[in-house]
C-alpha cells in the first residue's frame, strides 16, 4: 500500500495540459524522485499533493485519504503530517532562524517555551545550524536558508516530506550537504521523501525510485540503475544531458536555409 497514490491525474493551465493521465505511487520509507525538463509541472505536482491546487480529473490519496475530498480542517490536519521544502526556503523574513523553526510548534502546540527551545535546538543541530539561530533569514546563504527550512519542515515530525528543487542554484559544497542531509534524514527519521528535481546526478545518487515526466505523461519509471540502462533515446538524452536528440536543440520551425533565402524583411 503506497503512502501517496496518484491515479489518472489531469491538470490544465488554460488550454495547456500540465498532467494528462499520470499515475504515480510513492512508497513508505523510500526516496522517490520526480524528474523532468523545466516546465513539466513538477512543482505543480507537489502543490496538488499538498492540496493547494485541485486536479481537473483523477485522484490523489495520501495515507489512504483523498486529499481533495477533505474538509478544510481535515486537510489542515493532514498537512501537519506533511513537510514541504520550498525552493526559496520560504522562511518568514521578519523572524530569526530560531523563531522560524519554532513557528510550527508555537502555532500548533501548547508546549512550554523551555521544551520548544530544546526541540528547536535538536532540529537545528541536525542541519548543523544550531549556532546560527539568532541570524535573520536575510543574513543566510541560499543553502543555509534551505537547511533552516528543512529543520522547520521536520519540527512536527511529519510522515513525509516534499522537496521542491532542493539542489537548484547551489554551489557544490552546499549541494553535497543537502544531498547528504536528505539521505540521512530519511533514514534516521523513517521519513518518506518526494524529491522534485532536474539535477540528474545528485538525485540519482539518493533516489530509490525515479519517475520521469515529460509533456504531461510519465515517460519512464524505475530505479536509477534501470533508467540509466533504458533503451529510450529521450531518457538517455535527459539522463546524460545531451544537447541534441529527441528534444531538438533548435526551436521547431522552418529550415535555416529557407529562412535565409526568404524575401521577408522585418522592418
Amino acid at each position: 500500500m503506497p503512502l501517496v497514490k496518484i491515479r489518472d491525474l489531469h491538470f490544465y493551465r488554460g488550454d495547456r495540459a500540465i498532467f494528462d493521465g499520470v499515475n504515480i505511487d510513492i512508497h513508505q520509507g523510500k526516496i522517490t524522485a520526480i524528474m523532468g525538463p523545466s516546465g513539466t509541472g513538477k512543482t505543480t505536482l507537489l502543490r496538488l499533493i499538498g492540496g493547494q491546487l485541485r486536479p481537473h480529473r483523477g485522484t490523489i490519496e495520501v495515507d489512504g485519504q483523498n486529499v481533495h475530498k477533505l474538509s478544510h480542517t481535515e486537510l489542515y490536519e493532514l498537512r501537519k503530517r506533511m513537510g514541504m521544502l520550498f525552493q526559496s526556503g520560504a522562511l518568514l523574513t521578519d523572524l530569526t532562524v530560531f523563531d522560524n523553526v519554532a513557528f510550527p510548534l508555537r502555532e500548533h502546540t501548547d508546549l512550554p517555551e523551555s521544551m520548544i527551545r530544546d526541540l528547536v535546538l535538536i532540529k537545528l543541530q541536525t542541519v548543523g545550524l544550531r549556532c546560527a539561530r539568532d541570524l535573520m533569514p536575510s543574513e543566510l546563504s541560499g543553502g543555509m536558508a534551505r537547511r533552516v527550512a528543512l529543520a522547520r519542515a521536520v519540527t512536527l515530525d511529519p510522515m513525509m516530506i516534499m522537496y521542491d528543487e532542493p539542489f537548484t542554484g547551489q554551489d557544490p559544497i552546499s549541494m553535497g550537504t543537502l544531498v547528504n542531509l536528505i539521505h540521512r534524514m530519511n533514514e534516521a527519521m523513517e521519513l518518506t521523501s518526494i524529491v522534485v528535481s532536474h539535477d540528474v546526478a545528485e538525485t540519482a545518487e539518493i533516489a530509490d525510485y525515479i519517475y520521469l515526466l515529460s509533456e504531461g505523461k510519465v515517460i519512464e519509471e524505475g530505479s536509477p540503475v534501470k533508467l540509466k540502462r533504458s533503451s529510450s533515446q529521450w531518457v538517455q538524452q535527459f539522463m546524460q544531458g545531451l544537447p541534441d536528440g529527441p528534444v531538438p536543440f533548435h526551436y521547431p520551425g522552418t529550415g535555416f536555409s529557407d529562412d535565409l533565402l526568404s524575401p521577408e524583411v522585418s522592418a
Partner: peptide
C-alpha cells in the same frame, strides 16, 4: 505581496497554518 512572492504564504499553508487567519 512580498510574502506571497517569496512563498511565505504558501509555506505557511503547507505548515497547516492558514495565512489568511494568521
Amino acid at each position: 505581496g512580498l510574502m506571497k512572492s517569496t512563498e511565505q504564504l504558501s509555506g505557511m499553508e503547507m505548515m497547516a497554518i492558514d495565512p489568511i487567519r494568521r
